[in-house]
């Protein structure tokens, strides 16, 4: 490949020809951002380029004074003579794949992506390229997502059965993306829905972006003692577990919505009552299919099971290598003693 088009550096993936970075983890002059999760969109760069769809959401992360240029999906822009186009990644609202082209050579950076239906963001689009840079958060064949409709049915049934025994239902989901997807997928006629402040803030951004979500009430707005929580569903980031915030709900059943819930041991070790397999990332099949659809001759694999995915691709005759990045994809893998998941990162 034309090595000058993209190279890994200690600040992030860098395009020397266009003098810009993609998802830089240190301050740079020109930063193209795939999506608003904290490990991909960091404050401190001089100027940013990102997808128009995610404008409201990205503003909540980067602040109102950050200098950001928003572009629609598929609308090309020239950055120092390099043609840059954003395409939907289907990960969260406004998530983008970054297509970079110069002299007929094309590189696509996937950012985080998934292939399952999700009406809170535009669906992933396959783009042909020479080099594809992919995530690999769930890059093991044991990760095989069930039909999302089935999962939402499970959540609905769980909510109803908690109501029957007089327990509040607490769904733990990342406040950006996962929480809204769960909200959109469940049957809101079952009972009232309450949210943690971090979730509610992003619900507002989603609604402002034209995504319709069921009506929710911020927990902080009601008198906890006067509220009957036994019929309620509460959506909060995973970091609330073990803290005092959840005490106000009385008897409750907790469930984490995450791809990690596919494995029984992970569910058990976290001391959760239930786990639902809801992922914002591709599963194994989706990953391999997506890579093959790009028809890329060379694949760079980043955060997650990069070694495993690269080795599998090499066996299939695809030129693949792993690259080091500072994106996080393994947060549930830390010992329980260590501080748990941050609210803002993806899982």
């Amino acid at each position: 490949m034309q090595t000058e088009l993209l190279k890994p550096t200690d600040r992030g993936l860098y395009c020397p020809a266009g003098n810009f970075y993609v998802d830089a983890w240190k301050s740079v002059d020109q930063n193209i951002v795939t999506h608003a999760h904290a490990d991909h969109a960091r404050r401190g760069s001089k100027s940013y380029l990102a997808a128009k769809e995610g404008e409201q959401v990205l503003r909540t992360r980067l602040g109102s004074d950050a200098q950001i240029e928003f572009r629609r999906y598929g609308e090309p822009v020239s950055v120092n003579g390099v043609k840059v186009t954003l395409y939907p990644a289907g990960h969260i609202l406004g998530s983008a794949q970054i297509r970079i082209e110069k002299d007929g050579y094309v590189v696509v950076l996937s950012g985080d992506y998934k292939r399952e239906a999700d009406s809170t963001c535009t669906a992933y689009e396959s783009i042909r390229c020479h080099t594809f840079v992919t995530e690999s958060t769930f890059g093991l064949p044991i990760y095989r997502w069930p039909n999302p409709e089935k999962v939402f049915e499970q959540i609905n049934a769980w909510w109803r059965s908690n109501q029957e025994v007089g327990k509040a239902s607490l769904v733990l989901a990342y406040s950006l993306g996962k929480a809204q997807r769960v909200l959109e997928g469940i049957d809101s006629s079952i009972g009232p829905i309450y949210t943690h402040g971090a979730v509610e803030k992003l619900n507002e951004s989603y609604r402002d972006s034209g995504i319709s979500l069921p009506s929710t009430t911020y927990v902080g707005e009601v008198d906890a003692k006067q509220t009957d929580w036994t019929k309620a569903l509460i959506i909060a980031p995973p970091s609330v577990m073990g803290g005092s915030w959840i005490r106000r709900f009385g008897k409750l059943s907790s469930a984490l919505a995450s791809g990690w819930m596919q494995i029984r041991g992970t569910r058990r070790r976290r001391g959760l009552d239930s786990g639902f397999i809801v992922s914002d990332h591709v599963d194994w099949q989706g990953l391999i299919r997506s890579i093959e659809e790009t028809e890329a001759q060379s694949v760079w694999v980043t955060h997650g099971y990069a070694d495993v995915v690269a080795r599998s691709l090499v066996e299939k005759g695809i030129d693949a290598r792993t690259i080091e990045t500072e994106f996080q994809g393994e947060l549930l893998e830390q010992p329980s003693e260590a501080s748990q998941t941050q609210d803002a990162t993806d899982g």
Partner: peptide, 16 residues
């Protein structure tokens, strides 16, 4: 690799 991650043979098989 999968077995290492899951830690249980029957479960690994069921997921594969």
């Amino acid at each position: 690799e999968c077995y290492d991650r899951v830690g249980d043979l029957a479960e690994t098989i069921s997921l594969l």
